[in-house]
């Protein structure tokens, strides 16, 4: 049982690495931000699997905080970006 879970976790981790390529290569800022968003969600999924594999249900609180803060980062990126674009100076 835990072997299968472990296999799932390793594959999910590899998809995380895949997402990193877009963060580095992404030509525009929006690309990097959406890649970060996907990495955040994948980490939430990975934490769910780990909470079962390591029998620590408390890990879900961390997943909850990750879910919140992934949104905060994007909001911060967009909100600070706005002022710059319309800044005529």
């Amino acid at each position: 049982m835990s072997e299968v879970l472990l296999l799932l976790m390793v594959v999910l981790l590899l998809t995380l690495l895949g997402g990193l390529v877009r963060v580095v290569r992404g030509p525009s800022e929006a690309d990097r931000m959406l890649a970060a968003q996907l990495l955040g969600t994948t980490t939430v999924a990975l934490l769910m699997l780990m909470s079962v594999a390591m029998a620590m249900p408390r890990l879900l609180d961390i997943a909850l905080v990750f879910a919140i803060l992934a949104a905060i980062a994007v909001v911060c990126f967009v909100a600070t970006g706005e002022v710059r674009d319309h800044d005529a100076t």
């Binding site: 995380l16 990193l20 963060v23 580095v24 990097r32 931000m33 890649a35 970060a36 990495l39 955040g40 980490t43 990975l46 934490l47 780990m50 390591m54 620590m56 408390r58 890990l59 609180d61 961390i62 990750f66 980062a73």
Partner: peptide, 20 residues
């Protein structure tokens, strides 16, 4: 952005090391 993603990975490592 890479630094923020690094924060995600480091948090994962610490979960692995039983430090929730």
């Amino acid at each position: 952005v890479l630094f923020m993603v690094l924060g995600l990975f480091v948090a994962l490592a610490w979960v692995r090391l039983q430090a929730p």
